[in-house]
Design a protein around this nucleic acid. Sequence first.
DNA 1: TTATACGTTTATAACATTCTAAACATTCAA
DNA 2: TTGAATGTTTAGAATGTTATAAACGTATAA
Lengths: 166, 166
Amino acid sequence: MIDSQIEDIFIQTAGELAESVSLNRMVGQLYALLYIRPEPVSLNKMAEKLKISKGSASVNIRALETWNAVKKVWIQGSRKDFYTAEPDILKLVLERLDYGFTRRIALSKAKMDLIYSILNSKNEKASFYKERLKQLEELQNLVETFLKFLPKVRSLKNLKKIASVL
Amino acid sequence: MIDSQIEDIFIQTAGELAESVSLNRMVGQLYALLYIRPEPVSLNKMAEKLKISKGSASVNIRALETWNAVKKVWIQGSRKDFYTAEPDILKLVLERLDYGFTRRIALSKAKMDLIYSILNSKNEKASFYKERLKQLEELQNLVETFLKFLPKVRSLKNLKKIASVL
DNA sequence: TTATACGTTTATAACATTCTAAACATTCAA
DNA sequence: TTGAATGTTTAGAATGTTATAAACGTATAA
């Protein structure tokens, strides 16, 4: 059947992409399956289609849920959990990027504060360290500003506006 | 000695950051070591400082070399290889992002072409598939345009210009 | 030539991740 | 109640990744 062939290509490709960005393959495949299906799919159906255990389906679908990549939908008269994909992939990616960078910048700032306190406590000149720290702070500021503006990059039209001022 | 304490914090933090983005820890540590040292460092010195085998130092420094994150410098009268860090971290990150996205978009386009050819060969309507494929193409276009403009994001001044038109 | 000082490759040990099957828990219908 | 239908947790097997030590290759100095 043609549908199944197309779905298989689609799902497998998504799995490869997920792996290539250090996500679990199943997470990519589960999302892809829901993404190309117009109707909600149950956990068992997903496990069956992807030929994975229901245990795996369970934990990976919940990972997707915590990222708001899929959501549970209630279907009258059924005891099963059904899921659908959040179709706005760009939104998902931007959310993850923002979350990831924000956390990492916070960590690295804390460590830099520690280094400054060591430098100051000893009245150290250590000018090369200070130069590098300053560079890193500039990079952090740039990334933070960039993250704030990133959500607005949602259309080619906006990008063209941007291109026109640079 | 104060220098060593600061270097240790710096190097360890970089290792953690590297791991958190699925890079090898040593790669982050090696880069960090070269980044906070004003002078070139030899392979053996690096292995000694980081307490890793020279084999590991060798393979990981070469990974960094292929990304242009470090470069070999010739030092007169020495048979050793010395390395320094490329200090423009933003450039490195942008290069990697561009490379990674470009490859992945090419892969996914190829798979989408395959799906289209299947749909057409059967005169399938399959409208939901087509809707999803169209969405993905729009996302690809957006990302490609974005990648072209990304290199210009190199200063807060530019970002402020951008913010002003959105 | 021989010995030394390097960098690279390789085999394997240590460790981490992924996946499953089975046990378990919960809900609901009969 | 019981038991069937579901989702979750867990123990362990399979697989994948990382790091090392040792073997290896190569160049150079003596």
